[in-house]
């Protein structure tokens, strides 16, 4: 993606230094949460408010269905709080 041109400015090594866009995606913030959102598809009216208010864009709304990206969802619970029909509930994470 055009980074080669700046090769000489980038030091090669694997560690906390950033070489590729989206290096943060190695940081699975899903591990932070103690509760995860679960969607009751009957109740869900696809109003997309949960998609709108998720700080970390962990809710997908394509294809008229709500899907939570549990790799990164931090379990804040805003989606459950703001859902007008209470179709999302927060479920305690069990230690596996």
């Amino acid at each position: 993606m055009g980074l080669e041109k700046h090769e000489k400015f980038i030091m090669k090594a694997k560690s906390t230094l950033v070489f590729e866009p989206g290096w943060s995606e190695d940081n699975l913030t899903g591990a932070w949460r103690s509760e995860r959102p679960e969607v009751d598809e009957e109740k869900c009216t696809n109003c997309d408010i949960c998609w709108l208010v998720c700080p970390d864009a962990c809710i997908k709304r394509e294809g008229g269905k709500i899907e939570i990206n549990l790799k990164y969802c931090k379990g804040c619970g805003i989606c459950a709080e703001e859902c007008p029909v209470k179709a999302i509930i927060m479920v305690r994470e069990e230690s596996d």
Partner: peptide, 24 residues
């Protein structure tokens, strides 16, 4: 001849460099 702020070639400037890398 150097990295620039350009939407056609997005780059991030002013990163934090952690202790392990800072001396380099």
């Amino acid at each position: 001849n150097r990295p620039l702020l350009d939407p056609k070639e997005p780059l991030q400037f002013g990163e934090v460099v952690y202790p392990d890398w800072y001396p380099d």
